[in-house]
Design a protein around this nucleic acid. Sequence first.
DNA 1: CATAGATTTGTAAACGCTTACAAGATTCCA
DNA 2: TGGAATCTTGTAAGCGTTTACAAATCTATG
Lengths: 321, 321
Amino acid sequence: MGRKRIPTIHDVARLAGVSTGTVSRALNARSGVHPVTRQRVMEAVNKLGYVPSVAARELAGRTEAVGVMVTPRVWKYSPYFILLFEALDEALWHEGYKLVEVPMSPSGEPLQPAAGYIVLGAHDHDPRLERMRQKHPNSVLVGVHSGMFWVAPDDPGGAYAATQHLLELGHRDVAHLGAAGQVGRERFEGYRQALTDYGVPYRPELVLNGAFTTLPAYRAVRRAWEGGLRFSGLFAASDEMALGAIAALEDLGLNVPHDVSVVGFDDLPDLERPLTTVRQEIPAIAKAAVALLKEATSHAPPRGVRVGVQLVVRDTTARRR
Amino acid sequence: MGRKRIPTIHDVARLAGVSTGTVSRALNARSGVHPVTRQRVMEAVNKLGYVPSVAARELAGRTEAVGVMVTPRVWKYSPYFILLFEALDEALWHEGYKLVEVPMSPSGEPLQPAAGYIVLGAHDHDPRLERMRQKHPNSVLVGVHSGMFWVAPDDPGGAYAATQHLLELGHRDVAHLGAAGQVGRERFEGYRQALTDYGVPYRPELVLNGAFTTLPAYRAVRRAWEGGLRFSGLFAASDEMALGAIAALEDLGLNVPHDVSVVGFDDLPDLERPLTTVRQEIPAIAKAAVALLKEATSHAPPRGVRVGVQLVVRDTTARRR
DNA sequence: CATAGATTTGTAAACGCTTACAAGATTCCA
DNA sequence: TGGAATCTTGTAAGCGTTTACAAATCTATG
């Protein structure tokens, strides 16, 4: 039983009874092929499990490179960004582009030319962002920045839902473990809004600060608690922070969720402990980014889109005792 | 000034005054082209800055896929593995292969066929490893496992050098912050050997355990110190652990390196603090893995290779007061 | 010095896809 | 109902490599 030959466009064409040119058009071109023909082609594609060869497609000149820039560089090493990267790769490939990682010069110039750019993780007041906006209208930001194309998860909404969840469980001393930057700020806003809507006074001392990673979160929570701060609910601005917070609380002899309920944000896979958290649809964000990129390259006026987000309740939250 | 056209093999051929076939052979085939011709071709290649098109090469059937399997999956999210991945990608590409990430089934079967496999991070007693060894002789492990091809950094040597460095700075109470698994064990052995060679008695209570990440390291060090354990030098089994340890020591009111000297392992880039550490040459490991893979596919008897490692002294270590 | 054998080179056919172009089929209107 | 205008389709020429195969050139030997 020899290795199954991978089906090519010719196999599809033969099975569908059309020419390869037609198959190609059916697959790529938005128009110019009769609906019933396209239907037949699609059936053949499915029956054969045909998937176009990236190499051939690229050789034939159809794939353009889009540059993904990560800034600051270190963010590349966080799970969230890795997942986003993978999702972008997939989404771009699906639209006939290929992802190339391009470094950003200190002045904010892409170090390699590309048909378009996707910028990841820039600080909102980073001057390089402004520069990108002006010099490269064919770029989209994953984040928020007016005047350019951007996609972002519904951070305020998610934070609101997380906080609301804690409030509805009866918690009144709800702390927030936050981080700097646009994202951190928006998640904080959602937290604060929920407090307001539920008539719980906002107490600034209840907002702790760390970075988006575990260790700073651990330290912030532990220091605060040892300093006498008390709360029965905690909304952490990321899953990693939530993990750090839980470790700290446990080291202090507390039980999660018995003594303190903790909510995270992101819903990262493979965590050491199942978290109540706000789920981001990373693939959806990637798809939206690519869709916007196509708009951007066709000189449409810039706009931003929010991708929905969803609370998922697991076992780090419980009703207040 | 139009976009510079990317030079193709034809340009090289013309400039060198030979045919494209010859250029191709000069570039790829080990033999079958006259030395002076090859020389001329190489000059043309350099002058033009020619780099072969991956797509074309792949289409023409020269590139085979090699599967990289990461196990357990979560390791994919650590900086070390990301760097290793990138290095492997580069090294494979250089040899005309392309990297595809292939998941490993629970039983230890690659979920996609490939011309060869590179296994990353498996526990040394993982039964799936044994299975790979038997059913897929065309695979190499990054790690140590007798009976199959493997590459690994010189962990014992590096650990020895790190510990030696501390000892030569006059430290006598040298602790070790270790981790489980083959790698952890080897680094521990290096530590212990250095102690012996320098006539410093080995004290089991001085070896702390954590995982390879910051938070467990922080907790282990803090708990130990609070429990009364004292040391003036610490060899951590990874840079991330070193960072965690330093944070813990500082939270305890100690100064690094003034009160305690800390050495890491890996030499990760972009760290928040420059560490005295043991540098791994990740690109060299990747190259070695690929070289071994070629051996493995030609049915050579399995062997392992160690890649050298180097102590780099920065400012987290100081002479004992 | 002729010639068999070995070595080096050129030629051209793939690889799987896209797309300009031309041809064929369909629609629409006078 | 004829023909122009519009849609849909097939044909074939690339895209940049590799590699069988054949041709040309060398080397060695008698």
